[in-house]
Write a protein that binds this DNA or RNA. Structure first.
Lengths: 259, 259
DNA sequence: GCTTGACCTTGACGCTACGTCAACCCTCCA
DNA sequence: TGGAGGGTTGACGTAGCGTCAAGGTCAAGC
């Protein structure tokens, strides 16, 4: 007669595993000797080896019991199902591997490559890290909610960076938000630039077009994100309203009012 | 301000997952409103999306916190390690798939193919299912403990089945163990056959040879297995001893005694 | 003002396949 | 006779949430 340790050693498993199989009813509890020790016969070794063979093949313990005394057809069917599960799991992990291969560093996290190069170009034209991070977070929201449509936006955004007024705008914004001045006079200049750009876009019809096409974007979420990032943006929003523009991520021309 | 449900919906995760991230400190708990509800800003959506991006890529939650604000070098190193882990896991599952592909049906469980064909040949020569199962269990023990050496045994065992005396032996044993007779007279015939075969093997030197080479086999375990399977084998063992042979799986010639 | 349904709260157990104490008992060997 | 090295049960820990349970809250329609 064998002790639990000897049984485990013969089958190449741990004592704990054997007790676990007892607990879940996979291996029947053997007789105890006078001192309460479990005592096993040679047949238990065979049972245990058969269990381990299936377990090593990736069969969940909950199914091994049924499988061990199933007919050939049932067995084959179960084996097919387990193989399917394994294939799916492997595919999930392969996908994970591809995903992490994309994650080289900070920016690329949750962002498609064209946005990453847009952010890089922002840095090149002298945009401060704070402002770039703000842009990044905004694009993360867009990329998460509208992964397909982001490809429509980016070419235009990247092209904008060739406009010297846009470059100037980002530099001014960088200066403003890198300082701690509460009512920065440079906010006026920024507002002027933005109004000017909005005017142009409106003339080209880009804004009306956008209004319809991008109606489902989470503009309020993007607005909230910006305002959370820096309260001075509230002031900038006011200045824009003075110039006849409302909204933040989506510009709207206000009805003319007696100023 | 967003409720937890809205936050979760924006990021494409479950409410439970968000609460879990709070619990493990991955996502900071937000302020509560008057009624105790959690209220989130837009920045929380960005944080949550960044977390999910890493989690979807297979990064364990316990590491995501460190990773989100790590420098590029640390990040790259961590990504490499995670990729290694994923590769290992995939390889383990691939191995599992290969294993279950082998497990077509009953016998092949835990047995190499040559043993399976040996068992099939046993059936062909008219061996009963009970005896075949006994043989199978014995070979499972041998295959588990000495997976390499089993290739040394099998050719000889398969060749033995061409000997009409061996065929006769298995048929007699099948008859005996399929019946319920306690002191079956056919046990005598079985003993005669076994003694005869042992004598021949001894003459060819197969037994002495085996004695040294297979000294490390678990003969006592194999003996125990047989005796557990059917108590009538004890009687057969006695009969063999009368004929000058001891042991069961490994025969030994007894010293001649005045009988 | 009341109901109803959808949403929020905390707390707790469940899942897989065991690993790892803790606290204690039993056996064997020098 | 004592110590090493077995064995016993019981309980918690792992990863990442799912899924009740037992309530409190909110918004809408009557």
């Amino acid at each position: 007669m064998l002790t639990i340790g000897q049984l485990a050693a013969y089958a190449g498993v741990t004592v704990r595993a054997v007790r676990h199989y007892h607990q879940i009813g996979l291996l029947p509890e053997p007789e105890r000797d006078a001192s309460g020790y479990r005592r096993y016969g040679a047949a238990a070794v065979v049972s245990l080896i058969r269990i381990r063979t299936l377990a090593n093949a990736g069969v969940p313990l909950s199914q091994i019991g049924r499988l061990l005394d199933a007919d050939a057809a049932t067995f084959a069917e179960a084996v097919r199902k387990i193989d399917r599960d394994l294939r799916e799991e492997i595919e999930r992990l392969e996908t994970s591997r591809e995903q992490i291969a994309q994650l080289t560093a900070g920016d690329s996290l949750a962002l498609p490559p064209e946005v990453v190069s847009y952010l890089d170009r922002l840095r090149e034209i002298g945009t401060s890290e704070r402002v770039v991070e703000g842009e990044r977070d905004g694009w993360i929201l867009v990329a998460a909610g509208w992964p397909d449509r982001i490809h429509e936006f980016m070419p235009g955004k990247i092209a904008q960076l060739d406009d010297p007024r846009v470059v100037r705008l980002y530099r001014v914004l960088s200066d403003i938000f890198d300082s701690d001045v509460r009512d920065d006079p440079r906010l006026e200049e920024a507002a002027d630039l933005m109004a000017c750009l909005a005017e142009q876009a409106y003339a080209y019809g880009a804004i009306n077009l956008g209004e319809e096409a991008y109606d489902d974007l989470p503009h309020d979420l993007l607005d909230a994100l910006a305002l959370e990032a820096d309260p001075r943006l509230v002031r900038l929003q006011d200045l824009m309203r003075e110039r006849g523009w409302a909204g933040w991520n989506r510009m709207e021309r206000l009805p003319e009012s007696p100023a």
